[in-house]
Design a protein around this nucleic acid. Structure first.
Lengths: 134, 134
DNA sequence: GGTTGACCTTACCATCATGGGAAGGTCCAT
DNA sequence: ATGGACCTTCCCATGATGGTAAGGTCAACC
């Protein structure tokens, strides 16, 4: 049995976050010693690592909860898990697209900017420009 | 002179955000009518549109403030603007890289998952697995 | 002149996931 | 027994946005 600091080190989840996950119900309340310290065993650490890994893949906490529930459900259909993962792929793809677009626009502007000591700057011109109605 | 609702419509920045930008000092306090309504002219709307556009390119508010300062400074060197833009391109590129990596990992897992009614699922196996000590 | 509805004001709360810190209790090794 | 490293709870902050509630104002219409 480890206390929260060791569990944090073993799982890669900060002690702060472990408490938060417990508070929000993502994970069940940890056991406690007589003096109130939380205790964790290998199973709990594995759960924490699961959460960590899912977060690393960009799943929001709500989806992590869904994944955890499926993980615990031995009668799950893998199709459900796959759907969650596919949804997440779509979310990521969308975000990537948006950022690619921002990046392309910015690169275009950067390319057009002399970048010297003169004040003329197509980047500022673009930001301030567009069309203004009085 | 327009009130905040019209300025919001004209700039694409919500009234809520206009007040917030003013409160945080990103933009100077708007003029007021005798009864306390904020008033905006074409110049203010242009500033708001500048902010909107910069935010659309992913600049955090702090950088938007820097850009605004340069915009107002007629003696600026375009090199400074360019540097801000290049930094932002780098930030975007980094984020894109991270998300591409997540996406690639997930796609790999999705590909390996049968997605049927059976419980066996490489996605969950990966999340829970790695190396677990029981 | 009065009513109505659309607008404005401030002030507070919520998000999402995380970190920071204070004030106080516990554990262990010296 | 003392010190330092740990734990506990509680509150605050982030960044940018939305929501809501209580109350004031304006303009149009009858």
């Amino acid at each position: 049995m480890m206390n929260i600091g060791e569990a944090a080190a073993a799982s890669g989840v900060s002690a702060k976050m472990i408490r938060y996950y417990e508070e929000t119900g993502l994970i069940p309340p940890a056991g406690r010693t007589g003096s109130g310290y939380r205790t964790y065993g290998p199973k709990e650490v594995q759960v924490l690592r699961f959460v960590r890994r899912a977060r690393d893949l960009g799943f929001p906490m709500e989806k992590v909860a869904d994944l955890l529930a499926l993980w615990r459900d031995r009668g799950r259909a893998s199709a459900e898990v796959k759907r969650l993962a596919e949804d997440q792929v779509a979310v990521l793809a969308q975000r990537i697209r948006e950022m690619e677009e921002m990046k392309a626009t910015l690169e275009h502007l950067v390319h057009a900017c002399a970048g010297d000591e003169r004040p003329d700057c197509p980047i500022l011109a673009d930001l301030g420009g567009g069309h203004c109605r009085t």
